Simulated scan of single mutants.
Amino acid sequence: MIKIKTREEIEIMRESALIVSKTLGMLAKEVKPGVTTLQLDKMAEEFIREQGAIPGFLGLYGFPNTLCMSPNEQIVHGFPNNDPLVEGDIISIDCGALKNDFYGDHAYTFSVGEIAPETQKLLDVTKESLYIGIREFRAGNRVGDVGYAIQNYCESHGYGIVRELVGHGLGRKMHEDPEMPNYGKRGRGKKFKEGMVVAIEPMVNMGTHKIHQHSDGWTITTQDKKMSAHFEHDVAIVDGKPELLSTFKYIYDALGIESDEEDEFRAKKLI
């Protein structure tokens, strides 16, 4: 069952989402060659608790860490470990926070130092597909409209769209209805209504869409061992249109990047 949020609940969720955004922004300068993902995980847990929130992933379904850390061919759900990051790596950092009984949950794929041009293109296209999908998340449209838009754009660049893993509704639970696949057909699936909140998260592979799930029950990699990228935003329908609750602004501020990509999805400017 889809749980519609009031305006007041959406504002509470915005606070949780922005805690995740600020956490990713704090980590942005720390993602560099030589650092371990376990070190980043510890920084994130401390930062989230300092904001008066609880790490949303820690203990969820038995997950043992604050962050899902998925480098290179790992798609999602990777465990932080003591292996140092290496120049040319990419790493998806997926983070959640729980405050005032509502979750925030979003992700960004970072480059580690200089990366190959073809890898940068994968990151660019995946992030662009996120906003292409968000534009379709409006009252009266359907789940398939978002999935089709993401799939069509990414496959036009020759990339594979993961089928087994999807975005989701968000609220008092980390995963609520509806499921939000990154593939689909226009006009299919559940209809979007005012007050819905979802996490839209394209997971895009440089090669095949096929995956391999590891025996640890969590880690998922591309079957052909090629790179995978993952970007995620929390989005609400407000006045019939998509409005971002999360932001990459803090990441961009940390890295000195100027961007207006989020402006069309904001009722007011973030400061």
Rank of each mutant, 00 (worst) to 15 (best):
E128D: 10
P80T: 06
A107T: 04
G217A: 05
P202G: 08
M26W: 06
Q39C: 15
V20N: 08
E243T: 11
E155I: 00
K121F: 01
K249T: 06
P71R: 03
G184H: 00
R163Y: 09
G140M: 05
Q51Y: 13
I91D: 02
S156Y: 03
K249C: 08
Y148A: 10
T66S: 04
M227T: 09
I19Q: 07
E45D: 10
L123Q: 02
V76Q: 15
R188V: 14
I90F: 13
E8F: 08
G56W: 01
Y183V: 06
I4C: 01
D263P: 07
I257G: 15
E8Y: 07
Q39T: 09
A229R: 03
G104C: 11
D83G: 13
D216M: 10
Y250T: 07
D260A: 11
E73A: 09
A28C: 06
D177L: 15
K226P: 01
M180K: 00
R142D: 12
D41A: 10
H214P: 04
R49P: 15
V146F: 01
I161E: 03
G133V: 13
G52V: 10
C68V: 15
H233N: 07
H209P: 12
G88Q: 04
E11Y: 07
Y250P: 05
K99L: 08
Y131C: 03
Y252G: 05
H214G: 10
G56Q: 05
D234P: 03
E232C: 07
A107C: 13
G25Y: 03
I132V: 11
G256Y: 15
P64A: 12
I54W: 10
Y108C: 10
Y61M: 10
E73Q: 15
E9C: 01
T119K: 04
N205A: 13
K268F: 13
E232N: 14
S92V: 15
A97E: 00
I2T: 15
K226G: 01
G195N: 02
G104N: 04
D224M: 02
N81E: 14
T66C: 09
L270N: 12
G104V: 02
Q74A: 05
R188T: 12
F63I: 08
H214D: 11
G240S: 08
H168K: 07
E73M: 07
T23S: 07
M26F: 14
